[in-house]
Each structure stands twice: as C-alpha cells, then as structure tokens.
Design a protein around this nucleic acid. Sequence first.
DNA 1: TTTAGTGCAAAACCTTTGCAGGTTG
DNA 2: CAACCTGCAAAGGTTTTGCACTAAA
Lengths: 162, 162
Amino acid sequence: MAVFRDRLRKRGLKPASQRDDVALTFFKLGRHISAEELYAEVKKVNPHAGQATIYRTLRLLKECELVHERYFSNGKGRYEIVNDKDPRHRFICDRCGRIIEFQNARLERIRFAVARELGVLLGRQKIELYGICPRCLKDERRHNPAIRLFQNPQTRRCAPAS
Amino acid sequence: MAVFRDRLRKRGLKPASQRDDVALTFFKLGRHISAEELYAEVKKVNPHAGQATIYRTLRLLKECELVHERYFSNGKGRYEIVNDKDPRHRFICDRCGRIIEFQNARLERIRFAVARELGVLLGRQKIELYGICPRCLKDERRHNPAIRLFQNPQTRRCAPAS
DNA sequence: TTTAGTGCAAAACCTTTGCAGGTTG
DNA sequence: CAACCTGCAAAGGTTTTGCACTAAA
C-alpha cells in the first residue's frame, strides 16, 4: 500500500481517498477477485463509491505492477496481487477456475534453464498448469467413472469429457 | 475436420455449409485466433456469413473438444486448436501476447509428478511460462539497459518496468 | 488557481439470443 | 413436414469515457 502511494507520487498523482479505499480493500481481501466483486466489497466500506473508480484504480494498480490482470473462462477480468518474492506455481482448474498454488524446487530450476534456452525474460514468477481439480474430479467421476489420474500421453490419451 | 462432422452427426446435428466454412477456415489458419479475426477470414471465403455463425460454430467446436478457448490480456476470447498428441509447452509474452512453443523432456516428467502430488487431472497438455519475449526485450533495453536475462530471484529481484 | 479525482450516465465493446426465413433429411 | 441452420438486429454483460463538479497542492 505504501509502495502504491509512492509509485503514484512519482507519477505526479495526488492522494485520493476513494482510490485508497479501493486499493486497501483489494489488498485486504487477498488475491484473485473480479472487478464486480471488488465493487461490492468497496461499497461496504464506502457506499458512495462508483464503478468507474474501481476500474480506474485497478488500472493504476496494474500500471504500477502491483496487480496482475487475468481472464478466466467466463471472460471477466480478474485481478490478483503480484507476488514476486515467493515464487509459488499454480494449478488452475479448467472447470471451476479454482487456483491451487504449490512449490516445487525442480520445477523452479528448470524454469530458468528453459528461459535461457528461449532467450526470454521471465516475468511473473510462475508456472501454470491446467486441468481438473480434485473437487471437480469427484463430480466428473459420477458421469464418467473411467476417468483416471496421472495420465501420461504415452500410455493413455487425454481424458474424454462430457 | 472429418472428426468435427462426425461428432456433430452423433449429436444429431445436420451438415451445414456456413458452419463448414467457419470450421475449415479455422483449421486452415492454425492456432490462436480471435472471433473477430476469424470473422474477417471467413468473410473472404463467404462474404455472406454473419457474426452469429462464427460464435455458434466456435461454441460447437469447443463442445466437441476440438478447440480451446482462452482469454488474453485484451479480454477478448481467443481460440486455438486442441493438440493433445504433441505436448508442446508455451511461453507467453506479457507485452505483446506472442506465444513461443517449446518442448522439454524434464518439464514433461515433472508435470506428472506434480499432478500426482496435487491429486489433479492434467487437462491441457501444457505448461505455461510468462515473461517478456526476445523482441520486446530489445525494445525494453533501449529504455532500461540494466535489464538482464536469466533472473534468479535468489540473486536478483524481478525486473522493474516502465 | 491549476491539476487531478470522482460519480453518474452514456458509450463502446464483445458475445449471445430471438426471430423470420431458408435448408436438410 | 419436422428439425435444424442462418443472418439480421436487438439485447446482454462488462469495461471505458465524457462531463460537470469537487478536492488537493
């Protein structure tokens, strides 16, 4: 939050209470929220606030590299706190959008090897895996009991769905 | 394409020329396209086609598990051909959205180890890395020559931007 | 007093849907 | 004939913008 104010000052922007309400609410709630949800939360603190301020503040936070914008399967923008210091990777459920964070030292090392090979700069400190989370998997099994974990493409093709 | 017609028939749907135009155009163009771009391409083949058919066909392709829908930084839906057989991983540029595909056997193995640990089912056969691609990196260096490749968080913090 | 921040409402944007008419089996 | 496909235009939902006004430096 202090970092946010600092970066705004450097850009010649003024402190502003509504903006602070939005940013503070966002940081307090933790990661992974949509603009709409944030709007509802901010309303609780400051019922006077308008939608535009939400979007404008989120854009500022984005420009200050303090939040990251992502789009999930419903097409709505979702925002999350940028977290460079603690490189957790993430598994994202294709069904429900749930995010499971994890760490893995081997993955961590390979990441840099790959980046060097490709000649790229790693930005977000993350690797992302996609699939179906345990909870959705349970539902899935009801309709399709043949589904298996740990599929390896060499031994078995990707799960048929529906 | 034959697979598509087959899966539609199984669902009791009839062949339809406009739909075929859309699907064929999509497959021909290769991966990673937005609905808008596809619309423009289909127009070249069949100027008579309407937007609704594009969206409706994309939805069908999605339901047939032949395309995957993703959302990138502009919030527009983007579609790509599902490719289960040849598991290439991808690096996605945070600046320009360019996708660099790559393969890495070690990454491949670890992926399954991680999935087993988490108890999840791996869906898309992909790992994703994010960062800045070589081309954008060149631009970046003009403004900020201090930027370095192969950053390791233990020795050096993430690149400051802007 | 000049510059930036705000809420409201309207606009812009992408995607979906209703409907009337056309096509397929 | 029944069921599906299509284009058009209208509706739906999310995000941005214009404007008049307020608040901070």
